Simulated scan of single mutants.
Amino acid sequence: MFGNFQKSHLRIEVNASAEAIADSLLKPELFRQWLMPQQFERGLPEQLYPDLVFRASLGIVTIEHQVDVVYPNALRLILSQGIDGYHEWYWGEGWVQSRLEGVSLLPLNLGQTFALSRLRDFVTRKERDS
């Protein structure tokens, strides 16, 4: 794999319940909405589960995700192709934390910051509209 080893750890406050955050991270129908412009393959299940493998593309870059761990408050994805590494998510009432490490040509910290911002906006709006 070409690129640089990068790591980023971010935690933000989110005006949303742990359940709303979990749904937004574990249900493809929802994470497709806030992870734009990433495009996810069709045919994903209603919810992520361990050992599921799926692909997402960001322009010409494809990233393969293997779901390693799914707990009520945590998700760990093993990444390959466009990023060789892993992405961990942890959450609770009013907060979400993301840890991303890998080798890639992509600017991982920038992408992670953008994704967390989009997630915060999405779940806040979802909670407000419920």
Rank of each mutant, 00 (worst) to 15 (best):
Q6C: 06
Q6R: 03
Q6D: 09
K7T: 10
S8H: 13
S8K: 06
S8L: 12
S8Y: 15
H9C: 10
L10S: 08
R11I: 15
R11C: 13
E13N: 11
V14F: 12
A16G: 05
A16W: 01
A18W: 02
A18C: 05
I21Q: 01
A22L: 00
A22S: 11
S24C: 12
L25A: 04
L25R: 02
L25H: 04
L26T: 06
L26M: 09
P28K: 01
E29N: 02
R32C: 05
Q33Y: 04
Q33M: 13
W34K: 00
F40N: 00
E41G: 10
R42C: 03
R42M: 10
R42F: 03
G43L: 06
L44W: 09
L44Q: 04
L44N: 05
P45R: 08
P45I: 05
P45S: 08
E46Q: 15
Q47K: 11
Y49W: 04
D51S: 13
D51R: 12
F54Q: 03
R55K: 10
A56T: 09
L58Y: 11
L58C: 11
L58M: 14
I60K: 15
T62Q: 11
V67I: 14
V69D: 12
V69W: 07
V70S: 04
V70M: 06
P72T: 02
P72G: 06
P72R: 06
N73D: 13
A74N: 03
R76A: 09
R76C: 15
L77Y: 05
I78F: 12
S80W: 07
S80H: 10
Q81K: 11
G82Q: 02
I83L: 03
D84M: 06
D84Q: 09
D84E: 11
D84R: 05
Y86V: 02
E88I: 09
E88S: 15
Y90N: 07
W91T: 10
E93N: 08
E93S: 05
W95N: 07
W95D: 08
V96F: 03
Q97S: 13
R99N: 10
L100C: 09
E101D: 14
E101Y: 07
G102F: 04
G102N: 05
G102L: 06
V103L: 13
V103G: 08
S104V: 01
L105W: 05
L105Y: 05
L108M: 05
G111F: 14
T113I: 11
T113Q: 10
A115I: 08
A115R: 06
L116W: 03
L119Q: 06
L119V: 15
L119G: 05
R120W: 09
R120D: 15
F122A: 00
F122T: 01
F122D: 01
T124M: 08
E127M: 07
E127W: 03
E127H: 04
R128P: 01
